[in-house]
Design a protein around this nucleic acid. Structure first.
Lengths: 120, 120
DNA sequence: GTACTTCTTACAGTTAACTCTAAGTCAAGG
DNA sequence: CCTTGACTTAGAGTTAACTGTAAGAAGTAC
């Protein structure tokens, strides 16, 4: 299955502007038809979903580009990509811990304020 | 104990610029000396620490201002403030869940890539 | 008494990641 | 044929939260 940029935008919940922007930033490489128009594939859908996950976990465009470059170089870069992911995983773990701790602190504050309220 | 803006900046790890900015944005109200210079107190230290936690948990300046306004109105607003915190807690819980899920997905991806590597 | 810090207002600059416009061209669908 | 969508480059605008500059005044510390 192939998609025009409009169809792909609808499919991925991104705007055409953003898709062209991502392409310019080398996050993804897109095939073209005879007339030079972008033809997205299902492989692009899967890849963009992964890009979105990396973004959700706070990876910058800059770092995703590094990963994407390796990926488009093929299987030989698998080890290097794994290393990037492992590195990134560390920051995700840290972020998760941060939110857990913040939640505890917030609950403590709420609990303390509740008690104050009872005393008045 | 009282602090000049420079001392307070060092104490809170924020710049003087940021402190004045926060004041203009009504996040905190600061006492002045006879010459009109800011005199921060230990109460301000505690309050700013709480502001920083709210910021860390993704609360916008706009929303912190709402909370701060209530707080400076005194004890009568305690219930309203609690409601804001409870509301905010929901978003923190959601964020925590998001990071947990993302971590799982990332680990799955890493694991899958590792297996691929073994097969080649 | 000189260097330092602080004060004010007002406004410009920074960063990331979009988001959109202009202007002109071109191809497909009905 | 005509509308719609896509193409290009180049550049401007947006958002949040700072971050800094200018310019002039005034108090503080050694």
């Amino acid at each position: 299955m192939q998609y025009t940029i409009g169809q792909f935008a609808a499919l991925t919940q991104l705007s055409s502007y953003t898709l062209r922007y991502y392409e310019k930033e080398e996050l993804l490489q897109v095939a073209r038809d005879a007339a030079g128009r972008r033809r997205y594939t299902d492989a692009d859908v899967a890849w963009l979903q992964f890009i979105k996950r990396l973004k959700e976990t706070g990876m910058s465009i800059h770092n995703i580009r590094s990963y994407a470059r390796l990926r488009y170089q093929g299987d030989a870069t698998l080890a290097a990509r794994l290393a990037l992911l492992e590195q990134h995983k560390l920051s995700v773990v840290e972020e998760k811990l941060k939110w857990e701790q913040n939640l505890v602190k917030l609950e403590e504050k709420i609990s303390a304020d509740c008690k104050m309220k009872l005393n008045t």
